[in-house]
Design a protein around this nucleic acid. Structure first.
Length: 301
DNA sequence: TTAGGGTTACAG
DNA sequence: CTGTAACCCTAA
């Protein structure tokens, strides 16, 4: 991990996830074309989206071109893009440097205000500490919040109200896809190098086939439907482990989607014009969630 | 335009 | 030096 070139921000990642959930994997151009998402992903190209998704996903064949004795050829390549923005100086009172517990991961710039500087700084220190803690704890089934808190308290200073900050940050990390929350436990989301010798408790496909809502929008329904079918078909060919991982990921995605939909709906309350779009998006997200919620992992709030 | 291979750049 | 993430190139 690191911050190499033009690192993707949480907003961009969230937007990408939302776009994939909405339009399906592979339709990068369509995602980029989405008016809401395009504001956030303005600096990224369709290829960038594809590459980012490849990285986020736990790349299948990491063809590290390491096995090439490639040396001495230097391509003086200056930094191509110099966008980006003022680093929000976050001088928090000395020790506990934690911030933004923002509730809206997506910057839905609706018609009207042309917001240009929408950059949130990367992840804060606490986020890194949390990731480190979980990684070092290395619990195969994930770590409880209390365990994480204990670890951090031993390693670092215990600020006041730390518990609250930790909860907020955990939620933030979960919604942004860095962590997966499964039954009160948090795990590192993407690449899991440890193959976990034991087969995970199989997540039974509990097909929730009730119909809570009757969404009248046919368009989004068909779109979502085909997408879900494709994913289910793909899931059927997966191994047990892969399926478990995919299920956990799907839930994490769904949570992120729901959060975004919530934020979008909240925004829409103010702007009537966007209300319908947000509604449709929320419904689509809910449909996706319903279909994807095969595993009953979402018990707790 | 997209998927995949390959390269460059940075962090540990 | 190794791993990872962004970037680049090219076939399909």
């Amino acid at each position: 991990m690191g911050a190499p070139k033009q690192r993707w921000t949480s907003e961009e990642e969230a937007a990408l996830r939302a776009g994939i959930a909405k339009h399906g994997v592979g339709n990068w151009r369509r995602i980029l074309n989405d008016p809401e998402l395009s504001s956030t992903l303005h600096y990224r190209s369709n290829v960038d989206l594809k590459d980012k998704w490849r990285n986020m996903n736990g790349i299948v064949s990491a063809s590290g071109s390491r096995e090439k004795g490639r040396t001495t050829v230097k391509k003086t390549r200056a930094t191509p893009k110099n966008n980006d923005h003022s680093t929000t100086v976050n001088t928090v009172t000395s020790d506990a440097d934690d911030e933004n517990v923002d509730a809206k991961p997506i910057a839905s710039v609706s018609s009207g205000a042309l917001n240009t500087s929408n950059l949130k700084k990367p992840h804060s220190r606490l986020g890194n500490i949390i990731m480190e803690a979980i990684k070092n704890l290395n619990e195969p089934t994930g770590s409880h919040r209390t365990t994480i808190a204990d670890y951090i308290e031993e390693q670092y200073w215990p600020p006041s109200d730390f518990d609250h900050l930790l909860s907020a940050k955990l939620k933030d990390l979960t919604t942004s896809g860095k962590l997966i929350k499964v039954n009160r436990k948090y795990r590192i989301a993407p690449s899991s190098p440890y193959s976990e010798g034991r087969s995970p408790k199989m997540l039974l496909l509990e097909d929730v086939q009730r119909e809570p809502f009757k969404v009248g929008s046919d368009d989004s329904k068909t779109l979502t439907r085909s997408q879900v079918d494709a994913e289910l078909a793909h899931m059927a060919t997966m191994s047990a482990e892969a399926a478990a991982v995919a299920a956990a990921r799907a839930v994490a995605e769904a949570e992120a989607i729901m959060a975004e939909a919530e934020a979008a709906a909240r925004e829409a309350e103010a702007a009537e014009a966007d209300a319908q779009a947000a509604q449709a998006f929320a419904e689509a997200a809910f449909l996706t969630l319903k279909n994807r919620n095969a595993a009953k992992l979402m018990g707790q709030a």
